[in-house]
Each structure stands twice: as C-alpha cells, then as structure tokens.
Design a protein around this nucleic acid. Structure first.
Lengths: 186, 186
DNA sequence: GTCTATATCAAGATAGAC
DNA sequence: GTCTATCTTGATATAGAC
C-alpha cells in the first residue's frame, strides 16, 4: 500500500533516492542526533532548498528513510523465501537468514531507524505493521516457540551490530546463526 | 573503577540522584531527541543553573545516565547470581533472568541509552567494558553456543521492548524466557 | 550549592528569484 | 525543480548575584 517509490527503471536516480542515500551515509557517520538537513543537503549535492522541496520537513525525510529500510528488509526476505521454496519452512529460514546476514548498505540505512526513533518513537509505526507478517511466519513454524527464540536471537545480533556493541567475530556469528537455524529445526 | 556514586546511605537523595531520576522520566516520556536540559531541570525541581552545577554539560548528564544504567544491570545480575549459588550455572541463569524480566524503572532508564547512543555512539563505551563479564559467563557455560543464542534472544526481547516494538503478550514472554532457559540447559 | 539573566549558536523552516 | 537568503526558535552554556 502507498507504494509510490520504485519507479524510474533507468536513467539517473531521482533526487529523492540521492537524498535518501546521502541521509543514510550521514547518519551512519555522525550519529543519529547529528543528522542535520544541512549535512544531508551537502552530501546529496543539493541545496537545503532543494532538499526541502523533496522532503518538506525533517520528519518527512526520516519517515521516508524508515519506509525504505522496511521495504528493503521485506523484499530481501521475500526474495529469499521464494528461492527456498515458498513454504512455511522456507519462509522461516528466509526470515532468519535475511536478518542474520545483513549487507553493508542495510547496516548503514539501519542507523536511520535510530535517528527516527530518537526523534519520535511513533515513527516506527510502519515497522509495527510489517511485523504482522513476521508473526505469521513464526506461528506457522513446526515449533513456533523455538522459532521465536531463534528469531529473537538474530534480532538481538542485528541490534548489537546497530549500536556497535557486537562482541562476536565473523566466525562466531556464523556459528551463532547456524545454531539458531538448528534450534528452529531448519 | 571510578565508583564515586552510591554514597549517602540515608537522608534525602542527592541532587545528582534527583536529576538522574528526572532525566530518566523525561526521556521515557518525550523521546530521546527531546531530552532537553530545561525539561530535566523543571522535572527535577531545580533551575537550569542548578542542573549545570551538577552536570556541567549535557554529555556529562548522559554519561552519568549510562553509568547508572549499567551499574543497575550489573548489580541486579550479581545479586541474583549469588542467590542462585554463584557457580557458572547460576551466573548464566542470573544473566538471562535479569535481562528477561526487567523492572519498570529499568525500562525507563534504558531509554537514556537511546538518547546517549543517538547523541554520541562512543558514549556506550562503558557498556562495552561491562560486556566482558557477560562474555565470560557465556564462555563458561556447559554449551557456550546455546547459551549465547539464549542470551541474544533475551537481548532481542529487551531491545524490542525499548523501541516499543515488542509484539508479545506477558504470557508469551514467559514462555519465550522459559524456552531460552531450556535451550541454555538451565 | 542554587538561582536569574543572558549570550551564543545551530538547525529547521520560509520566501521568492531563477 | 532547484537555488540563495533570511527568519525564528529552541537549546546549550556562561556570568555573576544570592
């Protein structure tokens, strides 16, 4: 619903896209509270006026960042789920893997979530909606409770990453993820 | 180290304590970005000058909030660990329980962590240090990998709580926590 | 140790030209 | 659709009285 993004199949990226990329880069570098419109405009190569033409307020910008992040997460999960068969088992595996092995860009854009929640906790409402599908996947698992624990573990890992407090090596992460999959009987 | 708090056994609480309580209350109500010195001063019943006498900068205030939060977590865990026998098994159980069943005040003060990390990610350095002991507990478990997954799950739960995105009922939480303990062979 | 008053500044937002 | 220039506000921090 409300999906006005994802147009413009070729040609140069839209200003909106350039701005969102710039905002993600800035927030991952300077921290959530120092995500200023000036910094985003400079990084995006537009003036503050140009920025505010595309996103009339800072809240609008943050909202767009949240929506894009969620969209990326959902798409990644759904693509992977299809590759894995599209059944309940594949959906669960896709959920765990897509959260457990996040890409570099995803980690960057994730910082925008921190900025959003710091500015206004209610700005995560879109994430709350998207969580409904996650709950469905967990409920349809063979052992829903085990699946939930496994999912929470990968979420915990992703969160520790986000605040740069993850004490595990790449090797340990792999073991952890493997153990979580095992727990969920995958 | 560096433990200058925790004096004043009786009598009215120190200004510092009153201020930290006020800051925790404010941040949990208005969100991390709107934690202003004015609001904290008003809530604490002191003037802004009085506040800045105790904490010369906002960073100093946030730093104190972080330290207190970590101290509370560690104390809670250690007290519980002692009650549970003080061995490796008791330590692990205390770790999981202390994070899984957080108190109301703990949840409030936790919001200060969000404010701190939003302001300056490096302000979580004290938490990074405290994590060393957690890693020790996990390493000493009978099945370290399972214990790690269980710990990450309760961390994930605590984080979802923090951003008000936890989709589980109180009953479901209990089941989840029980399952995590089972996974860790407790 | 706490107060009032004020300086300073950063940042969000507006107006209007091009 | 993008720019420059400007307005306005809100928040940190300082200075000095009590």
């Amino acid at each position: 619903m409300l999906n006005r993004t994802q147009k413009r199949p070729r040609g140069r990226p839209s200003s909106k896209t350039v701005i969102l990329d710039a905002a993600a880069a800035v927030v991952s570098e300077v921290g959530a509270n120092h995500l200023t419109l000036d910094a985003v405009a400079e990084r995006a190569g537009v003036s503050k006026g140009g920025l505010l033409y595309n996103y009339p307020t800072k809240e609008a910008l943050l909202h767009a960042m949240v929506e894009r992040f969620i969209q990326e997460c959902v798409e990644r999960r759904e693509t992977l789920a299809e590759e894995l068969g599209g059944d309940a088992r594949g959906n669960l595996k896709a959920l765990l893997l897509s959260r457990g092995e996040s890409t570099e860009t995803e980690r960057k854009t994730a910082h925008g979530m921190l900025a959003a929640v710091a500015e206004n906790p209610r700005m995560l409402d879109p994430a709350r909606e998207a969580q409904g599908e996650v709950m469905n996947i967990l409920r349809n698992a063979k052992d829903p409770l085990a699946a939930t624990v496994a999912w929470l573990a990968v979420e915990g890992l992703a969160f520790l990453d986000l605040i740069d407090l993850c004490p595990f090596s790449e090797e340990e992460r792999k073991q952890i993820l493997a153990r979580a999959l095992e727990l969920a009987e995958l």
